Computed example of a mutant assay.
Amino acid sequence: MNSPEWTRGARAAYQEQVRTPVSTGSPTPLRQRPFRFLLIATVGGFSGYALLLPVVPLWAVAGGAGEVAAGATNAVFMLVTVLTQLVMPWLLRRVDCRGLFALGTALIGAPTPLFALSSDMVTLLGVSALRGIGFGILTVTGSALTAELVPTAQRGRAAAYYGLAIGLPNVALLPAGVWLSDRIGFEPLFWAAGAVPLVAALTALGITRVRLGEAPRTAPAQPVALLPSWTIMVVNTAATGGLTAFLPMAVDASIAPAALLVFAAATMLGRWLAGHVGDRLGQRGVLAPATLLGGIGVLLLALAAWSSDPVALAGAALFGAGFGAVQNTTLILMLERVDSATASTAWNIAYDGGHGLGAIGFGVLIAASGYPVTFAITGVLLTLCRTLAARRWA
């Protein structure tokens, strides 16, 4: 890391850098060939993840496990993911980032056919842990490569396209996995879900070799500089984890599936728009409106939970758009403050850890106060994040 002491001139140069809007004539990051290969490999890696996220618990139940034990398969997967992410800054300073990205993508797929051997919980938890290591590596290296493979002026749009490469498999394959397990059976699906990431790992050969270094000398290198953006990301992700888990129980059953689909689509659109607008007008100008938009959306969801009103669709759209924009903008703001390894790790921990905290926290609040009050409290917290986002150091 660089020394925490800045000269006054270095600080001024950094502040000018993050304030200055980027010219609208800056070319698209899709013109960078290594970045295109990164997107292709990302789609493959996340396809292996999304296909099985709802399927492995179903396989456990089919083998006689109870719901708690079945849920433990995904819980172990995410726990190992976060633990792996914690060691990534150290690892990325010693190993080529492209090689780690290929390894993580391969580990999502290679152990997967082992699920077919047995539905015994020891096997399921062991394979889930191996895949969690791969997912932890994949998520951190993918974000870091997004920043390293394109010019700084294109980072916002690059992160937006990277978000699409993650989002599309989730939208298309989360429901498809359940459908395919019913049509072709679990075992063929495990083999297919294992093969796709392995092929994607080969695509990484088209990515430039990258060894991550230190933060630019004009940027503050202390991880504490990430705290405002990290806090905003955790609050928004926790809201997402809780709402996606409990929205189907809080609103009318005829509205819930459409609301979740609208949320997923709006999240991708919000991230894509934030990347383009942020590169042109500056990232901080996007963050405050995005947090406010998300807060308003959740307040509408609270109204829907109270009255079973179709306003849930409007709330899901606003919350999704705000959350997508927050994802993109917080990542770029973190990359402006510290090296890519630290920024990517912090952002991914906020994302994955926030989801778990949200699901647990919502469960406690709902038990104490009900769905409408819990959603209303969440909407107020997201709206208050606008004050933090509007700060110059956010």
Rank of each mutant, 00 (worst) to 15 (best):
L91Q: 01
F37N: 06
P21R: 03
L189P: 02
S143H: 11
T123W: 01
A219D: 06
G322I: 07
A321R: 05
G275Y: 06
G48P: 12
R155E: 09
S229R: 00
L301W: 04
G241R: 09
R94Q: 11
G9H: 03
S307Y: 15
A12H: 14
F375V: 10
E336N: 14
L198N: 03
G370W: 10
L227V: 06
L382F: 10
L331F: 04
V18T: 13
L130D: 00
L124A: 00
R386E: 15
G142V: 03
A394V: 00
P175H: 08
L273T: 08
G194R: 02
S143Q: 11
R8Q: 12
S118C: 02
A70Q: 03
V82P: 10
N170K: 10
T123Q: 00
S254H: 00
S344K: 05
G315D: 06
R284A: 14
A50Y: 03
L301P: 01
Q222C: 08
T342K: 13
A13M: 12
L180H: 05
W191V: 03
L180W: 12
P228S: 02
L58H: 10
A376I: 14
F375Q: 06
T146I: 13
A390T: 06
F190Y: 11
L202A: 12
V56S: 01
L149T: 09
Q17Y: 00
A50N: 04
A225R: 08
G136W: 00
A245P: 04
L384N: 04
I377F: 11
A147K: 07
V80Q: 02
L318E: 03
P289S: 10
L174P: 02
H355T: 05
Y351I: 13
V82S: 09
Q15D: 15
L303F: 08
V122W: 12
L381W: 02
Y371D: 07
V224A: 13
G163Y: 05
T123H: 00
L273G: 07
A376C: 12
N348H: 02
G206F: 10
A238K: 06
F319G: 01
A201C: 04
A192I: 14
L381N: 04
P111F: 09
A165E: 03
L117C: 08
P89W: 12
P289M: 11
